[in-house]
Design a protein around this nucleic acid. Structure first.
Lengths: 344, 344
DNA sequence: GTTACGTATGTCATCGATAACATAAGCTCA
DNA sequence: TGAGCTTATGTTATCGATGACATACGTAAC
């Protein structure tokens, strides 16, 4: 009968609060607070009593109250695009969450359905309303509005492979290098021309990879053919492949994603063009299935997990206040979808 | 010079609060609160003044304060497993987030690195500490601890294709039916025996699919061969394929995931067994690349997005208090990896 | 013409933890 | 031994929005 029975009719059994713990442990609420946050000036004895009381009452601290009084939410926001490579989205989410969790931060996600500035504004508002202490924008590209800048003015922001606002720092995998690596590999094999199936033009990754391809060709004194545009999906790769298959002197293609390469290869084969005998293919991503394509794909590997973790670090440490542009390198995995051109 | 200059040295420029808005609009804070929440009893005129003041000051409401005073966080938690099919994880995240957003809820995610009850307890604690109003557990299977039940006692929980605690409701795609569909398709083609490469035994999806396979064979009066166990990855499919390829009378295999089917097919081909001429393959998932496998995969389609959205609905409406087990059906997509057995 | 009620708005206490300040005890050293 | 410091703990005000209750005004009804 340690319970006070003088409460007439509290309809809902309230969660125990710090005051309840304090009463049970016979100390003040402040001492409980200190004990639970490992403040230096608490007797081990007192701390033990507090912890026992916590255990006994099943106390959980109230996050809202903590946030309100301390002004810190210990939460960061993550903005993602719903469409487009689910592989990278998944890896980014995992990477951000792991790195944030490591640092004691929770992650609140906001997915936007399409590359629309209005949606983006609303997502940022939502996150800002939640009191996030930082935002990671993993959205490929979007024109930045004044309203967006208003919202993110007071909140540190890091952009992961996308556009950047005045206040945001950017970080990403070196996509131009990825395009260069892929193209150079094909040139090194002896190909005289490299075609390109790109991602959607509004994706900055797509643009950068295209630039890398163009620059690499230019450096070799080759005039780049017009790029064909896909939407990252295998279906779009198949579509563009049906065009490329009809152009006789195509011997090498750089596809901007593994998935498009899968479609591309099928289209080529259906038109009697063998990979890599007749046409060599290099793509980007190195998804798990890349090694199980027919033939296994030569592809540029991207470490999304690592770059996302780096984004969190950049956001939280915030050392590099000067709008730094950090870059994570990409590397080439050579398999069987590339070969020297047939001698003619 | 509308700014009051009488503040001597406020080091940090504080975010405007409701009181500030009230002062600017010439009303009370409570009226501001009502105006912003579309309470019925506010004059359009007053509301306009309030909104103007909000705009002018760039006011954003403080979520922590709102949560603290109203006791509602409007946030739900999502627990995911970091390893295993990134496709489903991505689809689940998107589905949950979309459905939750629709209902005005934010989503806080917690990823656990492995199927470990300790990690699970910590994740649930983290979410509970954040004050989530509901939790969706999208983790395949884990033995439920007393501590976990303690944590989730006061929080509604829905399990998505995983284990369930006493208090949790479960919902998922009908995995047993998926296994049955796949197996029956092979039997219908005339195969006399169907082998199975399953997912990891600790995944409930894997178990259910295996059960569907077993029951279907049993119904046809066939003794099921021992199942081979993979880990969902194409690599593991390749490994098990090397075993199956050495067994001469294997003519039909049910693989528990598309990715494993990719590996399996490669292994079979490397041993001179053609798909579907010598061996038919059916798998589960219908990922975007399934149609671009060589040959295109016959597979059981799963709508993760839909089932996750349903989970949110179940969690939020909470109609079905009686520990319901809701099930979303699966369907078969027939392509070219299956054929009648070679007549001998 | 007073009673009764509905509508618009204001006042005050409250949610739970914490920062800032206050106090009490114990210890050191001149 | 008492000034001065350190350490452990208590007290009080505060964060910002909201629920409950209070008030003021208008209008309809008897």
């Amino acid at each position: 009968m340690t319970e006070a029975t003088e409460r007439p009719s509290r309809q809902v059994t309230r969660q125990p609060s710090m005051a309840d713990v304090a009463r049970t442990a016979g100390v003040s609420a402040q001492t409980v607070s200190r004990a639970l946050r490992d403040s230096p000036n608490v007797t081990p004895e007192t701390k033990k009593r507090v912890l026992a009381a916590v255990e006994q009452l099943g106390y959980r601290f109230n996050n809202a109250a903590r946030v309100l009084s301390s002004g810190r939410s210990h939460t960061i926001g993550l903005v993602l695009l719903q469409s487009g490579g689910y592989y990278s989205r998944s890896a980014v989410t995992a990477g951000v969450e792991a790195a944030a969790g490591e640092a004691g931060y929770a992650v609140s996600i906001a997915t936007i359905a399409s590359l629309d500035t209005g949606l983006m504004e609303r997502s940022l508002s939502k996150l800002a309303d939640q009191g996030v202490e930082g935002i990671i924008i993993a959205v490929p590209l979007i024109s930045v509005t004044r309203k967006m800048e208003d919202i993110t003015r007071d909140i540190p922001t890091v952009t992961l492979d996308g556009s950047r606002t005045a206040s945001a720092r950017a970080l990403g995998i070196d996509q131009k290098e990825a395009g260069r690596l892929a193209t150079q590999h094909l040139l090194d094999l002896g190909h005289r021309q490299v075609w390109h199936v790109s991602g959607p033009d509004e994706w900055i990754e797509a643009r950068r990879r295209r630039e890398g391809w163009q620059e690499c060709l230019a450096a070799a004194g080759i005039a780049a053919p017009p790029p064909l545009e896909g939407d990252w999906s295998p279906d779009s790769g198949y579509l563009q492949g049906q065009i490329l298959a009809r152009i006789p002197d195509v011997t090498a293609v750089f596809a901007a994603s593994d998935e498009m390469a899968f479609g591309l290869i099928r289209a080529l084969r259906e038109h009697g063009r063998k990979v890599p005998d007749d046409v060599s293919i290099v793509s980007v991503d190195d998804i798990a299935l890349a090694a199980y394509c027919c033939p296994p794909l030569t592809t540029v590997r991207q470490d999304f997990y690592r770059s996302s973790a780096a984004a969190v670090a950049l956001l939280l440490t915030g050392d590099d206040a000067g709008a730094a542009e950090v870059v994570v390198p990409a590397s080439l995995a050579v398999r069987d979808s590339t070969a020297p051109p047939r001698s003619h």
